[in-house]
Simulated assay, not measured.
Amino acid sequence: MGAAYKIFGRTVQPHVLAISTFVATAAVTSYFTMKPKSKDETKEVPHLNQQNGEKPSTANADGKDDNVMKSIEGFLNDLEKDTKQDKKVN
Protein backbone atom coordinates (compact mmCIF):
# COMPACT_ATOMS: atom_id res chain seq x y z
CA MET A 1 0.00 0.00 0.00
CA GLY A 2 1.23 3.48 -0.82
CA ALA A 3 1.43 6.66 1.18
CA ALA A 4 -1.59 8.10 2.92
CA TYR A 5 -2.36 11.50 4.41
CA LYS A 6 -3.59 12.21 7.92
CA ILE A 7 -6.37 14.80 7.80
CA PHE A 8 -8.16 15.67 11.07
CA GLY A 9 -6.73 12.50 12.61
CA ARG A 10 -8.07 10.23 9.88
CA THR A 11 -6.04 8.39 7.27
CA VAL A 12 -7.05 9.44 3.73
CA GLN A 13 -5.81 7.74 0.58
CA PRO A 14 -4.51 10.02 -2.22
CA HIS A 15 -7.14 8.92 -4.76
CA VAL A 16 -9.97 9.76 -2.33
CA LEU A 17 -8.41 13.16 -1.71
CA ALA A 18 -8.12 13.82 -5.47
CA ILE A 19 -11.72 12.81 -6.19
CA SER A 20 -13.06 14.90 -3.30
CA THR A 21 -11.07 17.89 -4.58
CA PHE A 22 -12.66 17.56 -8.04
CA VAL A 23 -16.15 17.19 -6.56
CA ALA A 24 -15.71 20.20 -4.27
CA THR A 25 -14.39 22.35 -7.13
CA ALA A 26 -17.32 21.36 -9.37
CA ALA A 27 -19.82 22.05 -6.57
CA VAL A 28 -18.45 25.51 -5.82
CA THR A 29 -18.27 26.40 -9.52
CA SER A 30 -21.82 25.26 -10.23
CA TYR A 31 -23.12 27.09 -7.16
CA PHE A 32 -21.69 30.43 -8.27
CA THR A 33 -22.73 30.03 -11.92
CA MET A 34 -26.31 28.97 -11.14
CA LYS A 35 -26.88 31.37 -8.24
CA PRO A 36 -29.51 33.99 -9.11
CA LYS A 37 -28.12 37.47 -9.65
CA SER A 38 -28.53 40.03 -6.91
CA LYS A 39 -30.73 43.09 -7.42
CA ASP A 40 -27.69 45.28 -8.07
CA GLU A 41 -26.50 43.03 -10.89
CA THR A 42 -29.91 42.86 -12.55
CA LYS A 43 -30.14 46.62 -13.10
CA GLU A 44 -30.28 47.53 -16.75
CA VAL A 45 -26.78 47.49 -18.17
CA PRO A 46 -26.29 49.21 -21.55
CA HIS A 47 -25.30 47.05 -24.50
CA LEU A 48 -21.76 47.24 -25.81
CA ASN A 49 -22.63 49.44 -28.77
CA GLN A 50 -24.62 51.76 -26.50
CA GLN A 51 -21.56 52.30 -24.32
CA ASN A 52 -19.71 53.69 -27.34
CA GLY A 53 -22.44 56.28 -27.90
CA GLU A 54 -24.04 54.44 -30.83
CA LYS A 55 -27.74 53.89 -31.10
CA PRO A 56 -28.99 50.48 -29.95
CA SER A 57 -29.25 47.78 -32.57
CA THR A 58 -32.59 46.30 -33.50
CA ALA A 59 -33.20 42.68 -32.69
CA ASN A 60 -35.86 40.46 -34.20
CA ALA A 61 -38.23 38.19 -32.26
CA ASP A 62 -35.61 35.45 -31.96
CA GLY A 63 -33.23 37.88 -30.28
CA LYS A 64 -30.72 37.74 -33.14
CA ASP A 65 -29.08 40.98 -34.07
CA ASP A 66 -29.85 42.06 -37.64
CA ASN A 67 -26.40 43.54 -38.16
CA VAL A 68 -24.73 40.32 -37.05
CA MET A 69 -26.93 38.26 -39.34
CA LYS A 70 -26.10 40.52 -42.28
CA SER A 71 -22.40 40.27 -41.51
CA ILE A 72 -22.56 36.48 -41.36
CA GLU A 73 -24.49 36.28 -44.62
CA GLY A 74 -22.00 38.60 -46.30
CA PHE A 75 -19.10 36.49 -45.06
CA LEU A 76 -20.72 33.29 -46.31
CA ASN A 77 -21.41 34.85 -49.72
CA ASP A 78 -17.78 35.96 -50.00
CA LEU A 79 -16.64 32.50 -49.00
CA GLU A 80 -18.84 30.89 -51.67
CA LYS A 81 -17.46 33.28 -54.31
CA ASP A 82 -13.90 32.41 -53.32
CA THR A 83 -14.55 28.67 -53.52
CA LYS A 84 -16.19 29.06 -56.94
CA GLN A 85 -13.17 31.02 -58.19
CA ASP A 86 -10.82 28.36 -56.81
CA LYS A 87 -12.77 25.63 -58.64
CA LYS A 88 -12.61 27.61 -61.91
CA VAL A 89 -8.85 27.96 -61.58
CA ASN A 90 -8.40 24.21 -61.06
Rank of each mutant, 00 (worst) to 15 (best):
Q50N: 08
F75M: 05
E80K: 05
K37W: 04
K35D: 05
S38L: 14
D66P: 02
G74E: 09
N77T: 05
M34N: 07
K88N: 14
K70F: 03
K39H: 15
N77R: 10
T42K: 11
P56S: 11
D82P: 00
S38F: 14
T42G: 00
M69Y: 11
K43F: 13
D82I: 03
E41W: 15
P36G: 06
N67S: 13
N77Q: 05
K88I: 08
G53F: 00
D78E: 04
N49R: 03
I72T: 08
T83Q: 07
N52T: 05
T58C: 02
T42C: 09
G74P: 00
E41I: 02
E73I: 07
S57F: 02
K81T: 08
L76N: 12
T83F: 13
A61V: 11
T42H: 10
S38T: 12
L79K: 03
D65N: 15
K37F: 13
D78T: 03
G53C: 00
K37I: 01
N49T: 03
A61E: 09
E73K: 13
M69Q: 15
M34E: 02
V45G: 00
D66S: 09
N90R: 14
L48W: 05
P36T: 06
H47W: 04
K84Y: 00
D66V: 08
D62W: 12
E44P: 12
N67A: 13
M34P: 01
I72H: 03
D78W: 02
G63F: 09
L48Y: 13
V68S: 15
K88P: 01
D65I: 06
Q50L: 01
S57W: 11
S57C: 07
M34A: 07
K64Q: 09
V68N: 04
L76Q: 14
P36F: 09
K88F: 09
K43Y: 09
K87S: 06
D62Y: 13
K84T: 01
D40W: 14
K35P: 12
E80Y: 08
N67H: 13
Q85A: 10
G63Q: 02
D82L: 06
Q85T: 02
M34W: 02
M69E: 11
I72R: 15
I72A: 12
L48D: 12
L79G: 10
V45T: 03
H47T: 07
K81E: 02
A61I: 10
T58W: 06
K39C: 12
K55R: 09
S71G: 06
A61W: 05
K43P: 01
Q50H: 00
F75G: 08
N90F: 05
K84W: 01
K81C: 02
K70C: 00
K70G: 04
D65V: 08
M69K: 10
D82V: 04
E44C: 12
Q50D: 06
L79T: 12
E73T: 13
N52Q: 10
N60D: 15
F75W: 07
P36Y: 05
K35G: 11
M34F: 03
M34S: 06
D66E: 10
T58F: 14
Q50W: 04
K84L: 03
L79R: 01
I72L: 12
M69I: 14
N49D: 10
I72N: 09
Q51W: 00
F75A: 02
K81H: 04
K43N: 12
T33V: 07
V68L: 15
F75D: 06
F75S: 06
A59S: 14
T42S: 10
N77C: 01
Q85M: 00
D65C: 11
D40E: 15
V89H: 11
G63M: 07
